[in-house]
Design a protein around this nucleic acid. Structure first.
Lengths: 187, 187
DNA sequence: GCAGATCTATCTATCACATGGCAGATAGGC
DNA sequence: GCCTATCTGCCATGTGATAGATAGATCTGC
């Protein structure tokens, strides 16, 4: 069951990271969640940086899968775009957690380089997916789609952090609505 | 010079908070910056929560002054709105710091209630100012101006954190441009 | 006007606690 | 007998906080 222990550690760490960030990750709490001792985690992940890197990598991989699921279930790019904010909404709904990309901004200085790189991949995955849908939907000209995609990603991330700091998911929904009314997101 | 010591502590703490957040505030570093011993800070601010509260309060007060300065210098609300992102851009330009409002989202769980309240005031000040300009400029109907103001605040905050996590202020400018093109911000 | 009391602002020294990490022992399977 | 996976026990570091001492300013009563 060695793989399942490693997976369990990763899952617990991912949960903790979405709630407290990289700095908030600590071996003792993760160990307690998994049901092992703190020192045992070092066997699977030699250092905290290694653990953080693995968490961040797994995180964007999972997100990529979720995004593909959305575009598979909604072949109409317009409808896929409409569902995009769900990704961020789910974190909030799940115990007021936020995405690692936002934690990264706060913790930028103390993040090991390898962790930074993986978290940036999260943004890249989002932007690439958005860019593709925007082009498919002919919302913007292809050469501008990446700029718009980045703007949408940043704005939705902003809505998530603002909503979190009020612990108010309805505020998130309202912000997304406002983005649609203003024209940032397709209505 | 008692007042100046207190002010010096507050200034050092404000700087540190914009760089590392509330969790990153620590008595020893602040004391070293000011040139006193860590224990002496407790004389002026009994606990870390008290210091954090004072920092956050001072922070939104300063921001309110900056915003008033913008609207005083630019009586045309359209022009004042154009200058709004400056507030967030300056933090980035100043050693890649970000606003306390964004840190708050990351640190929500560990923030003392009094600190939370003061940081929320920062958002309130921004939204109130934006709402007023939007109404003056007749960009949105008065009854919708607060919703739009909130959307702008969230989006600009999002641009700031995305730019910080790439340590790339040009990205911030580009995101703001995209918001204008998309119609979220007046062109 | 001045001595003694009190207040202000700082210091030194220390505490309790949490953290990441490591060394070495141990049990079980191959 | 070796490899895997875990354990116990420990350490160095950094944290916020407190107690108690001290030097200097300021106030108070005679």
């Amino acid at each position: 069951m060695s793989m399942s222990a490693k997976e369990a550690i990763l899952a617990a760490a991912k949960d903790a990271a979405k709630a407290y960030g990289y700095g908030g990750l600590n071996f003792r709490d993760i160990a307690a969640t998994v049901g092992i001792k703190a020192a045992s985690i070092h066997y699977h992940f030699p250092s905290k940086a290694d653990l953080g890197e693995a968490v961040a990598k797994r995180y964007w991989e999972d997100t990529a899968v979720e995004l593909e699921a959305i575009s598979a279930a909604s072949p109409d790019p317009m409808q896929a775009l409409h569902r995009y904010p769900e990704i961020f909404r789910t974190s909030l709904a799940n115990d007021n957690r936020i995405c690692l990309g936002s934690f990264m901004a706060a913790e930028y200085d103390e993040l090991p380089e390898a962790v930074r790189k993986e978290v940036q991949s999260f943004a890249d995955v989002n932007v690439a997916w958005l860019s593709k849908r925007l082009t498919e939907a002919s919302i913007v000209r292809a050469e501008n789609s990446e700029d718009r995609a980045r703007a949408i990603y940043a704005a939705v991330a902003g809505a998530q952090i603002v909503a979190r700091s009020r612990a108010d998911i309805a505020l998130f929904d309202q912000l997304i609505d406002s983005y649609r009314i203003a024209g940032l997101l397709p209505a």
